[in-house]
């Protein structure tokens, strides 16, 4: 088995008395591509936040890239794209600035971005199809374009673990296959990819398995099993 990049053991988490996640176990290796599915409120986003250390489990252990998800040295190798825009719109912000912000942690304090870094920013923007809009203000773009910019910010540092919360939501259907292929390239290069989605079919061509959250537990199933369980007996979303 390849190097383990995600290790969850007996993870329990709840905001109140009732747990959202109740004994989640998972191991993923380098280069694995997984889709995380489940009904609304099943804990998909919560699970991603546990993996990036924004939440801590009530019980059990979470390890990523061989260490704690709150370790800054570990976090620099994790790319995280939350769902939707999470920034104040008081001041204008260009697409380039948003994507360049993704390099700040890996570059290190007090070091300015150099020409090589700006090339990486340009490549990440082009990879999500926003090359013509790189100088535009993010808040003047459509929701789908904003989502692509957020995705580019997660990709720009070439992280070893990519955690993406509904990365294709709001994005034009015609553009989705190219984005999904880009994520597959990242996995082929050794990154572990977990993408939350309500529509695992989008990833059918590129991902090995589907992780489904049901009643606080994680099931690891194939696309065929997903179809059999949820499309024939009601989708989880």
């Amino acid at each position: 088995m390849s190097e383990l990049t995600v290790e969850l053991a007996g993870v329990r988490f709840g905001y109140g008395a009732a747990p959202i996640l109740d004994g989640v176990d998972l191991t993923l290796g380098a280069g694995e591509f997984s889709v995380l599915a489940g009904a609304n409120g099943s804990g998909k986003s919560t699970l991603l936040k546990l993996l990036v250390g924004l939440l801590r489990p009530n019980a059990g252990t979470v390890r990523v890239l061989g260490g704690s998800p709150t370790d800054p040295d570990i976090r620099r190798h994790v790319g995280y794209a939350p769902q939707g825009l999470r920034m104040a719109t008081s001041l204008p912000v260009s697409v380039t600035e948003v994507v360049a912000a993704g390099l700040a942690p890996s570059k290190g304090m007090l070091r300015r971005l150099d020409r090589k870094d700006w090339t990486r920013v340009t490549e990440a923007i082009e990879a999500v199809g926003l090359g013509d809009l790189s100088a535009e203000c993010l808040f003047e773009l459509s929701g789908g374009q904003q989502q692509r910019a957020i995705l580019a910010r997660a990709l720009v540092g070439h992280p070893r673990l990519l955690l993406l919360d509904e990365p294709t939501t709001g994005i034009d259907q015609r553009l989705r296959p190219a984005l999904v292929r880009e994520l597959r390239h990242r996995a082929d290069d050794g990154a572990t990819v977990i993408a939350v989605s309500h529509d695992p079919d989008e990833f059918h061509e590129v991902c090995e398995r589907i992780l489904v959250l049901v009643d606080g537990r994680l099931q690891r199933i194939t696309h065929e099993e997903f179809h059999h369980q949820f499309h024939e007996h009601g989708a989880p979303g």
Binding site: V52, G53, L54, P72, D73, I74, R75, R76, V78, G79, Y80, A81, P82, R86, M87, V93, E97, V98, A101, G102, A104, P105, R153, G157
Partner: peptide, 14 residues
Amino acid sequence: VAVALDEETARASG
């Protein structure tokens, strides 16, 4: 700038 744009993501990225 990174923190001003998105504090949560900045924290998650180290």
